[in-house]
Design a protein around this nucleic acid. Structure first.
Lengths: 166, 166
DNA sequence: AGTGAAAGTACAGCTGA
DNA sequence: TCAGCTGTACTTTCACT
């Protein structure tokens, strides 16, 4: 199920909903240049085919007193598949861990974590992360500030690619 | 503008909309236990106060032929504020860079990037990122797989904290 | 196009400082 | 008493067939 089934209108729909996920269907239809009913059918189809995986409100963590954001680079002792999966399952349980990506290279995982304050993060780091079996090394870096946090996919790149192919 | 102005209903609204940003207002109202009009008013207030920064559809990048996701750790030669800002402005222009966070420690920035394929990323890396003045070092790691990608804020942690304070 | 549901508005009542 | 929030009633707009 690749790109090929999507026409220009589908891609516009995805771009618009990525930019504003709460747009009404009539507004969306107007922007992509079709009438509302077929537009809604397309959205449903895109959802069912998995092109749209969900919709989320972006909540300001700092305003909810989550002052600390941390990237943690984790190295494991064993990279056997069972051990990797076990570590990933742990990450899914830990609420403070918001993202967990397996990497190539010297580091095995990068985690994005949030916490209300440094001491909460420290107790998670020592009490949970570092005391997990098979965790060999953890290097943490505090986020000073965030310069960019764009959602998902750069549709301008996608369109440029398609234009070049055509 | 802190946490203190939010009551339990507001926090429930944020948690529900973070989980499903396209929920209808009546469904939301039912879940948080009030009627629809005051619920809508609360949502508008939360939006205007900046607790809700936006709504986005989550689009499956791989299905749109963005096969490559990369974390890039960037070190700069000069960390003067003007130079930091200049680099951040560049990142905001680069479509392939989806996130740019300034860090403490040995590395200055971590970037999350996506690209259709490795060669596209490589040409961005050498043509754009590495040829930017003031960029001293870049270490890149390909994402093998993503074990967790949770949006925003862990509301269970927030509620546990508030319960402990009370 | 048409029906049924949801969004949004106006107003009146309740509750706590 | 007064401010703030709630719920009911109503109109407009949207979702869906």
């Amino acid at each position: 199920m690749a790109n090929h089934k999507l026409d220009e209108i589908d891609r516009k729909i995805l771009a618009e909903l990525q930019a504003d996920g709460r747009m009404t269907n009539v507004e969306l239809a107007k922007r992509v240049g079709i009438s509302a009913p077929p537009c809604l059918r397309r959205v449903r189809t895109l959802e069912e085919a998995g092109f749209i995986k969900g919709y989320h409100a972006v909540v300001d963590a700092r305003k909810l007193d989550f002052e600390v954001e941390v990237f943690a680079m984790v190295g494991l002792q064993s990279q056997a598949e069972a051990d990797l999966s076990r570590f990933e399952a742990k990450c899914r349980q830990w609420s403070l861990v918001r993202e967990c990506h397996m990497l190539n290279g010297e580091v095995d995982f990068v985690l994005k974590c949030v916490a209300p304050d440094l001491s909460t993060f420290q107790s998670f780091l020592t009490g949970d992360l570092l005391s997990t079996p098979n965790v060999a090394s953890v290097k943490t870096s505090l986020v000073i500030r965030c310069a960019k946090d764009a959602p998902g996919v750069p549709f301008d790149v996608l369109e440029a690619r398609l234009a070049r192919e055509a």
